[in-house]
Write a protein that binds this DNA or RNA. Structure first.
Lengths: 254, 254
DNA sequence: TGGAGGGGTCGGCATCGCCGACCGGTGGTC
DNA sequence: GACCACCGGTCGGCGATGCCGACCCCTCCA
C-alpha cells in the first residue's frame, strides 16, 4: 500500500474538480483550485484531452469532462456482476410493487445507484443511474450502514446534513436505527431525504455472505405507507427480491 | 500539442483494456497486454484503485473498472449542454413518432449515444446511453459523416464491417450517400445495422452552425417504412426536432 | 492605450516513476 | 506430497520524465 503515482492522483483530482463544479473551468481555475502550477495543470489537461477524458470548449478555452468517461462508465455497468444478476429481479419487483426500484452499492461516502427501474406508469421520470444518495438519509444507505462496517467508517461522526425535519442527523440515533435494521432485516426511510417520499430497502450478499449492495423500493408516502408505517407487503417483496439476487450471486441458501 | 504525460496515457490505456475485455483481467495480463513491466502496471493499477477508477476482486486479485467512472460519466451528462437542451424535444419526438429516439455525438470512430428515449410502449428495453454505434451503418453516423469532416477523417478508407447484407462497406458508395444526405438534409439506414430495424436522423448545429450531434428515430421496418422507403411524416418530425434543438443551442434562425 | 488576466509554451533541474530482480502464496501435475 | 509454474505484489537504484516558474501572445476592459 505504498505511494501513489503523483500525476495520476492529480489527474483524478482534476476530473473530480470538473465533475463537481456545475460549469466549465478555465486552466487557471483548475491550477489554483488544486494548488498546482499552471504549466503542470496544463500538461495533465492536455493528456486527459488527448485521451478523451476532458474536452475543451473551442471558444472560451475552458475545460469540461469528456465523452470517454461516459463510455467507460457504461462499460463498468456491463461487467458489473451484481447489476447483471439483479436486472430481471428488479424489473419484477417494480412491477409487483408498482413503484420505483433502485439498486445501490457503497461508493466512497454515499450510495451509488447502479440500476434504476422506473415506476410502471407513464409519468415523466429521469434516470438516476450513476448518481449518489446520502448514506444516512435513505433506506439503501441505512442498509449498507447496518451491515457494512466500511460504510459506517466512511460516514464518520456527524452530525450530518438534514434534508428534511425527519432526517436523522445524530450518530446515536442512527446507530440505534442500524441495530433495528439488523434485527428486522430491512430498512426504511420515510420523508428523510425528500418530503413526501418513502422507501424500503434490503441487503444483497455475495457468495461469502459479504454485503455487496442493496435493493430498494421508493415512492410517495401515500402509496408506500399505511397508517404511518411502510406497507408490510412491500417489505416482503423487497426482502424476497434481495434474497433472490443474493442467491443468484451464489450466497448459500438459508 | 507537445508530448503527453506517460503515466497518464498508460493509465488510460489500462482503463480501455479493462473496458474492452468482457471479463476481469489479472495484473500479468494487463502488463503483457500493453507491453509494460509488471511493477509499472502494478503502480498504475494501485493508484487507479485508490482513486476508485478500478476495483480489485478480493478473491482472485483480478482487476475491473471502478464505480467512480460511472459517477463521472453521469457528471459528464449533467454538464452536457446539447443533451440538456434536447431532453424535452427528444421526449416529444418519441411520443409523436411512437418510436425509440437516440441522441448521438461523434466520439473517436463511432457515435456515442448521449440520450435515449424508450419507445412509448410497454416492451422491455435496455438503456443504451453510453454505448457506441458504427459511423458507416447507422442514420446517426451517416449524418455526422456527411456534415463533420472530422468524422469522415476518423473513419478512414474502408472497406468496413458488414453487419447485414445491406450495410454499405465501400468508400465510394458511402460518400455518394453522404452527398445525398447533404442534399436532402437527412439520413436513413434501413436494415444496415440490424435486420428489421430502420432509422432516420437529422443534424444538430450549435450557434456557429458547427455540427455537434444528431437526433434519430429508430424502430421496426414495418412501422418506420412504407413501400420500401422511410415514412415522410417521420422524416418531417425528426427534422423539426433537430431544428428545434439547434435553435435552443443558439443557431441562427433560417 | 495600457494593464490585467486569460490560455499556452519552454527549458533546466531534480524528482518521480520505471524497470527487472526478487518474494511468498497457490493451484495444478505427476 | 514434492515439485514447479505462475500468480500478485514489493523494492531499490538509476535515469528518463514530468514538474515548475518565467515568459509569450491574445483578448477584454477601463
Amino acid at each position: 500500500m505504498s505511494g501513489a503515482i503523483q500525476s495520476l492522483s492529480r489527474a483524478a483530482a482534476i476530473l473530480r474538480l470538473l465533475a463537481g463544479g456545475e460549469r466549465r473551468l478555465g486552466l487557471s481555475e483548475v491550477a489554483t483550485g488544486l494548488g498546482l502550477a499552471k504549466g503542470t495543470a496544463h500538461g495533465i489537461l492536455r493528456t486527459l484531452q488527448q485521451e478523451g477524458f476532458v474536452e475543451q470548449d473551442p471558444d472560451s478555452g475552458k475545460y469540461q469532462l469528456g465523452a470517454e468517461l461516459l463510455r467507460l462508465g457504461q462499460s463498468y455497468l456491463d461487467v458489473h456482476e451484481l447489476r447483471a444478476r439483479a436486472l430481471v429481479w428488479a424489473d419484477d419487483l417494480a412491477r409487483a410493487a408498482g413503484e420505483t426500484v433502485y439498486l445501490g452499492v457503497l461508493h466512497q461516502r454515499g450510495v451509488l445507484v447502479v440500476h434504476h427501474v422506473f415506476r410502471p406508469d407513464d409519468s415523466r421520470q429521469v434516470l438516476e443511474v450513476g448518481s449518489m444518495q446520502p448514506l444516512h438519509a435513505t433506506a439503501l444507505g441505512k442498509v449498507l450502514l447496518a451491515y457494512d462496517p466500511v460504510a459506517r467508517g466512511e460516514l464518520g461522526d456527524g452530525p450530518w446534513e438534514a434534508f428534511t425535519p425527519r432526517t436523522v442527523t445524530e450518530p446515536a440515533a442512527l446507530d440505534a436505527q442500524c441495530a433495528l435494521v439488523r434485527e428486522r432485516g430491512w430498512a426504511d426511510a420515510v420523508e428523510e431525504t425528500w418530503e413526501g417520499v418513502a422507501s424500503v430497502a434490503a441487503l444483497i450478499q455475495d457468495r461469502r455472505r459479504n454485503p455487496v449492495g442493496a435493493v430498494c423500493v421508493s415512492g410517495p408516502v401515500e402509496t408506500v405507507c399505511e397508517g404511518g408505517a411502510v406497507r408490510p407487503s412491500l417489505v416482503a417483496s423487497v426482502r424476497t427480491a434481495a434474497r433472490a439476487i443474493s442467491r443468484d450471486l451464489g450466497a448459500h441458501r438459508f
